[in-house]
Structure formats: structure tokens, C-alpha cells
Amino acid sequence: MSNNGKTINQVQDQIIDEFSLFDDWMDKYDHLIEEGKDLQLLDENEKKQDFLIEGCQSRVWLKPDFDGEKIYFKADSDAIITKGIVALLIKVLSGRTPSEILETDLYFIEKVGLSQNLSPTRSNGLLAMVKQMKLYAMAYKAKQKG
């Protein structure tokens, strides 16, 4: 997914702006569902156990692609709201260097009201997704150095 030359924080601010239009939770969810529809999905054969993120009530697959400089993520989920959440993360973090991903403070999560989904026991696995993205970044960073 391309960032259209925007910085990570520009993308985060844009997401915050978009969500600020909605007072009602249902409208926020509608928007989240729309975001999920824009997600570049995995092919069925890419939905492998390897890419499955543990600890979610819904299934989430996250596949990284590293071109030596930047990481590109693709993802899918069997739950629509979860798909929207992972789509937002991808919007912010896909097409970034491992260092950028590792250093990013994902402040948009709290600002759009998703932080209640961040506790470790929450079932949508937002925390698990963020952790997995950072883990991939760490691994590719080590590879770059090596």
C-alpha cells in the first residue's frame, strides 16, 4: 500500500481527522468497516498458519514483504471490524523502514477511541497485531545489519 509520500504521523493525523467527523459509535464502526474494504487482501493460499496472529477471538493473518529497505504488509481477518482495525495499522505502518516502524508511537489508536481494545486480554488482538508488526520490523532490521 502506498503512503502517497506522507510521513507516518501525517497518516495518523489524517485518520484522526476522519474519525473526528463521527460522534456516534455506529458511524465510527461503519467507517472502520469501509477502511477494511480498502485493505489489500491476502490470497487464500497465503492464509497460512505462519501468518496467523495468536490471541485474537477472530482470525487475523498478517503477511510482511521486505524489499531490503521497506516492509509492506498485507492482511486479512474473518471479522469485518478487525479487518478495519488492521487496515488502519497497515495504512500507517506499511511501506516504512524497519526503524520507522520500531520508533513509531501509534497515538492515533487512542485518539480514535480504539485504545479500549488495547488491553492484553481484549479479544480483537489489536495489541497482538501491533506487536507482530514490530517483531517483523525487528527481524528485518537485524537482517539489514547482518
Binding site: Y29, S58, A79, I81, T82, N124
Partner: peptide, 10 residues
């Protein structure tokens, strides 16, 4: 075929 999690969130 709605995921139970989606329904629960709404």
C-alpha cells in the same frame, strides 16, 4: 455468516 466478534462489538 457474520462473525460473532463483529456482532458483539456492535
Amino acid at each position: 455468516n457474520i462473525h460473532q466478534y463483529d456482532a458483539g462489538m456492535i
